[in-house]
Amino acid sequence: MPAMTVISASAVPAHVRGALTRWLLEVTPELYVGTLSARVRNELWTAVSQSIGDGIAVLIHPSDTEQGFTLQTAGTRKRHPIDFDGLTLIAYNFDGNEIANPL
């Protein structure tokens, strides 16, 4: 069953933005929203995450979790999702070093 999908993609190559606009609406610069089947969403995310280059991307879609959604990231970023007893929290990296799970 199709579900709402949100992808934020910053500093990605033009061909990645083009691929995203084939399936999703670019509602503001770098923010894409649409309704996709799980298969299309997974294939699109695989293509985006493999060609992200120096950019960053975040995928959010509904799932059967306590929060009601799942969050996935790709690329170099300062914010890292971490799992805390089934909840996704965001750890912020101030110095550019890899974040060890502090929990």
Rank of each mutant, 00 (worst) to 15 (best):
M1W: 15
A3M: 11
A3E: 15
A3P: 06
M4N: 12
T5S: 09
V6I: 15
I7N: 04
S8P: 05
A9P: 07
S10K: 12
A11I: 07
P13V: 07
H15T: 02
R17N: 14
R17G: 15
R17D: 02
G18W: 06
G18P: 07
G18F: 06
A19E: 10
L20T: 02
L20M: 06
R22Y: 14
W23H: 14
W23F: 10
W23G: 05
W23R: 14
L24M: 08
L24Q: 04
L24P: 01
E26I: 03
E26G: 08
V27S: 10
V27N: 12
T28H: 10
T28P: 08
P29E: 05
P29V: 02
P29S: 15
P29T: 14
L31C: 07
L31W: 03
Y32M: 00
Y32C: 00
V33K: 10
G34N: 06
T35D: 13
T35S: 15
S37L: 07
A38W: 08
A38D: 12
A38N: 12
R39H: 13
V40T: 06
V40P: 02
R41K: 12
E43R: 08
E43L: 11
L44S: 04
T46N: 14
A47Y: 13
V48E: 01
S49V: 03
S49P: 05
S51G: 15
S51N: 15
I52V: 14
I52H: 01
G53K: 05
I56H: 11
I56S: 14
A57S: 11
A57H: 06
A57M: 08
V58S: 02
V58W: 06
H61F: 13
P62V: 02
S63I: 00
S63K: 07
S63W: 07
D64G: 03
T65R: 02
T65A: 00
E66D: 07
Q67H: 03
Q67Y: 01
Q67A: 01
Q67N: 04
G68T: 09
F69Q: 01
T70Y: 01
T70S: 13
T70V: 13
T70C: 04
L71H: 04
L71Y: 01
Q72K: 12
Q72M: 12
Q72F: 13
Q72A: 14
T73P: 01
A74L: 04
A74Q: 00
A74Y: 00
G75R: 00
G75A: 00
G75V: 00
T76D: 12
T76K: 13
T76V: 09
T76G: 06
T76F: 07
R77C: 04
R77M: 03
R77D: 05
R77K: 07
K78P: 09
K78H: 12
R79C: 09
R79K: 08
H80F: 14
H80E: 11
P81L: 05
P81C: 04
D83I: 07
F84W: 11
L87I: 05
L87C: 05
L87V: 12
I90R: 04
I90E: 06
I90A: 12
A91Y: 06
Y92G: 08
N93S: 13
N93A: 12
F94Q: 11
F94S: 11
G96R: 05
E98N: 11
E98K: 14
I99V: 10
A100N: 09
P102R: 01
P102Y: 03
